[in-house]
Structure formats: C-alpha cells, structure tokens
Amino acid sequence: MLKKILIILAILIASVFAAGKWFFSLLPDASHYEGVKTAEVKDIPYLNQAQPENRGKILAVVTSVDQMGASGKSTGYELTELARAYWVFKANGFEVDIASPLGGDAPKVLDGDDMGVFDYAFLNDSSVQQQLENTLRIDDINPLDYQAVYFVGGKGTMFDFPGHKAIKNLVRDLYEAGRVIAAVCHGPAALLNVQLSDGSWLIADKKVSSFTNSEELFLIPEAREIFPFLLESKLVEQGANFIAGADYLELVVRDGQIISGQNPWSVWTLAEATVEALGYEPVARVRTAEEHAVDLLAVYEKQGYQAAIDRLSQPAKNYERVLVLMHGVLAFMKFELIKGWDMLMLTQKIKSAQQ
C-alpha cells in the first residue's frame, strides 16, 4: 500500500511540475520586456506623421496623493493612462498641459507588465519629463483655456479629487461652457460633488462608468477600509446611471459632454472618443497588441470559446498573450475553472501562431 501511495504521490508531483513548466512557457521571454524599454517617439510611426493644425489645448489632471490613506500602500497616477491619452491628443493636433492638485512632481505608478512602446516613449521623452516634474497647480488654471479636461486614473484620486474646490470649479466651468469632460478608471472621482450653477449635481441621471466595485474588491479585498468610499457606489449614490462592463475589459460611456472609461484598458478608445466629441475624426492608428487581446477576450465573454478560436483564425493580428494569460489566472482565482482553462488554451494558440 505504501509503495502505491508513493507512486501516486510521485505522479502528482511530476504532473504539477510539468503543468507549472508549461504555464511559464506561455510567458514571453525577458527580451520581450527589455526590448520596449528604449522606445522613443522617433520609433513610432503614429507619433511621427503630420499632425493636424493646432486645435487648442486639453488639460490632463493627475493625483498628488502617494499613499492610500493610512494603509501604508503606495499609489499615484497610472502612467499608462496618462501616456496613451497624451499621445492620442497630440497626434490629433491638441496641445496637452498636465496639472495636479498640488502642482510639481506628482507621484506615478509604473507597472512594467502593462507598459509598452508608447508608455516608454513617454517616459523617455525629455519634454514630457519636464511636464511631469512640473505639473501645473489646479488652483492656477484658467478652465476656459482648454477645450477638454481628462482626469487620469490612479487610486490616489479617491483621496484628493472629490473634495478639491478648484477641481469642482474647473469641471463646472468647462461643462457649462460646453467643453468636454473625460475621465478613466478612478479618474471619475473628479465628477463627484460637482454642483452646477442651477444647483443640480453634474452626474445626476448621467450615464457614467468607472473602476467597478467588483474590480476594486477583487484586487483589494479590504478596499472598504482603505478608501473613503467605493467609487461605483458613490457615483450611484449621487444619482449617476452607472454602466458596468466585464471586469478588466474595455468600456467607454458617453453622455453628451461627459465621457468615462471603466479601467486602464479603456484609455485608447476614451481618448479617441474625446477627439470625436470635440468635432474631429481621430487620426488613423494601428491598434496595439493589447487592444487586440482585449477584443479577443470580449469575444470570449460575449460569444464563448469557439467564437474566440474563430477570431484567432482570421487574418493574423498581434495579440498580447500575457494579458490573455492573466485573465486565465484571474479566472482560476475566482474558481472559474473552465474559463481559466480556456484562457490557457487561447494563450497557447497565440503563442503557436507567433512562433
């Protein structure tokens, strides 16, 4: 009996080891990440084409908070959410200013697993760095200098955006002047507590999205204790018609002048929707591998595994397989075993097509 038990145990250990080795083989090698770190503007065709004539200015606003309350957890603005929108605005003929509640060098969050060539080109650009180290102070801003404002996400926004008088005045003045208000992920915290001149609340009965309670609590189970509120709940409490999509997939909602995105994967579409809201057709852009992966995951969510396989069999696209793999990990963590396995199979097929 002992011999049989030992044999079974050895088989289980070998199986786990083989499964782990296969899982890690689905990840790109280190050169995949190292190769993008030296990206510069000159390397990206989208950023080197002729730009439309100057169409005015857009203000991007980031948080000044570097810690999540008393938790000791560091935070700041999400660099990817700023960088990608910044490049879309610039490519479409807009000058971009960057501001924060305190001004100066605002704290940023760099997530190497999520960063690509556009993000590193942003980091490696000296003129951009000058802006990042010297963000404008919101109190010193003349709102009507701008055609639109874009509130960048980052968990710090939950602490300094909602109660900031100058931010509330900025949003009110721009909205009442017919300008565009855009925000992504935690950025819609800036829409809270904004009262218009007629006494009504800005977001009352407006369609709005943001980082959802489901997304927040999965990543930070103690979010209710760390944050002063959950953003989705607070938006609903103040009268918003909250729109939520699938967790960690793109969703952009427009209600007149207000454009909001659910999470970081919504930034590209939100930025281009902002350009459209300002009356212009966005300049053509080659979609990124991450966007193609998000599209694939959306097909899976709406139509199932076979539809996702069929999408992969269409004319070749470059898919960011790490993102698909991470959705598999998330599924296993939620005990959605079939979905998790499907994600691993999709990742394997993407890897095979890329070899």
Rank of each mutant, 00 (worst) to 15 (best):
I5G: 13
I11F: 12
I11W: 05
L12H: 01
A18Q: 07
A18K: 01
A18W: 09
F23M: 05
F23R: 05
F24P: 01
S25M: 08
S25N: 11
L27E: 13
S31M: 01
S31I: 02
H32S: 14
Y33H: 13
G35I: 04
K42E: 14
I44R: 02
I44A: 03
P45H: 05
N48H: 08
G56H: 06
A60Y: 01
V62Y: 07
T63M: 05
V65I: 15
Q67K: 15
S71E: 10
S71Q: 03
S74Q: 13
S74Y: 08
S74H: 13
Y77V: 01
E78R: 09
A83K: 05
R84W: 05
A85G: 15
F89I: 01
A91Y: 06
F94S: 06
A99R: 06
G104A: 02
K108D: 14
V109M: 14
L110G: 00
D111M: 12
D113Q: 13
G116L: 05
V117S: 14
F118E: 15
F118L: 13
Y120C: 01
A121E: 10
L123H: 00
E133N: 13
E133A: 11
I138A: 11
D139P: 01
I141H: 09
P143K: 04
D145W: 03
Q147H: 10
A148H: 07
F159H: 10
K165W: 03
A166W: 03
K168P: 01
V171I: 15
D173Q: 15
Y175S: 08
E176I: 06
V180E: 07
A182R: 03
H186A: 09
G187E: 10
N193W: 07
V194G: 08
D198H: 03
S209N: 08
N213T: 12
F218T: 09
F218W: 10
I220S: 09
E222W: 00
R224P: 02
I226G: 08
P228I: 09
L230F: 04
S233W: 04
G239Y: 09
I243D: 11
G245K: 05
Y248C: 01
L251I: 03
R254F: 03
D255E: 10
Q257S: 13
P264N: 09
P264I: 08
W265D: 10
V267W: 06
W268I: 07
A271T: 06
E272D: 10
E276P: 00
G279E: 07
G279V: 00
A284L: 10
A284K: 12
R287I: 00
L297T: 03
E301M: 04
Q303W: 02
G304A: 08
G304R: 02
D310L: 01
D310W: 00
L312A: 07
S313N: 15
N318S: 12
Y319H: 06
E320G: 03
R321L: 09
V324A: 04
M326R: 15
L337F: 15
L337W: 15
W341D: 13
L346C: 03
